[in-house]
Simulated scan of single mutants.
Amino acid sequence: MTMSSQELFFASARKCLSVGKKSLSLPLSLDLAAQVLAIDLGLKPALLYDSNGASATQVQQYLNSLQSAQLVSESLHTLVISGNALIINRAIVMTNLEQMLLGSNVGVINVCHTLEKPIIADLLNKDLRSMTQDLLVILREHVELQETEKPLYIGDKSEPWNLCTLFGILLGYPVTYWFDQNKSFENCLAMTPLMVTKAWATWQADAEGHRCCLYSFSIPASLHKDTQSTVAYWDNRLKERFHRQTVLSNLTVCQSVVTLPSVCL
């Protein structure tokens, strides 16, 4: 009896991502599958894996299993930065990093704790440019080595990197936060109204379909006008890519404003 794609995804998650005797639940495995499909389709460049405590090696084994079953392409890989495992579409991530160095349409917001309120930051300050260039070189070298069946560990090179800023870039957000981590990891976002943007889509894995959140990011409401064109560009690009595929459906982008007593980045 032939297994459906849903069953194959679930079987791969159960086989590769179990921690001890505990495996991913069906809803979690379906959500992960939808996210991985979105990355493979180019709808998002990466996912920070946090479904359970599975190791980076297990995550890569999961991807290898999906690739062997021809459920996803060879473009997907596991990237490990400071103990954080990300599932990436390597080609898209590299393109985004190259565009970042050329001054692409990505906003950077300075949220240093010494500021009274968040401000637009220099797109390519020295630290950000160095971090972007270093990661791009590492990824290019990895492509040349063709070591596709093992996770790519960045190692000590990432120690000076601002992971908050980098993860925003890797995850494909139109804006990312920056702060001077050499001075403090605190920020000035406490009690600051934030406009939260979320993008949802449906994977028709079963009769009802599985609804998943592809993106969730925030922008200080006070900077809405300053970042409006950047977010609009991201929104249009997402919709264009979405219309070129048939795996996911019912794209919905919604916004809401929240104010929190503290914000951890």
Results as ranks from 00 to 15, higher is better:
G42C: 04
N64I: 05
G20S: 06
S68G: 14
L71Q: 09
T2I: 11
R14I: 03
I87F: 14
Q99P: 00
D31L: 12
C16A: 10
A56M: 00
Y49M: 04
L76H: 10
L41Q: 15
S55L: 10
L47K: 13
F10I: 15
L101I: 05
S75N: 10
T2Y: 09
T95L: 11
N84H: 10
L24V: 02
V111Y: 01
S5W: 10
F10D: 09
K15Q: 13
I87E: 04
A54E: 09
E74P: 00
V111K: 00
L28V: 08
N84Y: 13
S68Q: 13
A56Q: 02
V59R: 12
L8D: 08
T57R: 12
R14K: 15
G103D: 12
L43G: 13
I39L: 14
T2D: 07
L17Q: 05
T95F: 11
S68I: 06
L86D: 01
Q60G: 09
Q70N: 11
A13C: 15
S5R: 13
N52M: 04
I39M: 03
T78L: 01
L79T: 02
I92M: 11
A56V: 01
Q58K: 08
L28A: 11
E7W: 05
S12Y: 05
N105V: 03
Q61S: 12
S104Y: 03
V93N: 10
R90C: 00
I81T: 00
G42V: 05
S68K: 11
V36D: 08
Q6F: 08
D31E: 13
E74V: 06
N89T: 00
S104F: 05
V111C: 09
A33H: 13
A69V: 03
L32C: 12
L86C: 10
S68N: 10
L79W: 01
Y62C: 02
L37P: 03
V108E: 07
G107Y: 13
Q70P: 01
Q61P: 03
Q6C: 08
P27A: 04
K15G: 03
H77Y: 00
M1G: 14
V72I: 15
L76C: 04
T95A: 14
L79Q: 01
M94R: 15
M3T: 06
Q67A: 12
L32E: 01
I81K: 00
A85E: 01
N84Q: 11
C112N: 15
L79S: 06
Q61V: 11
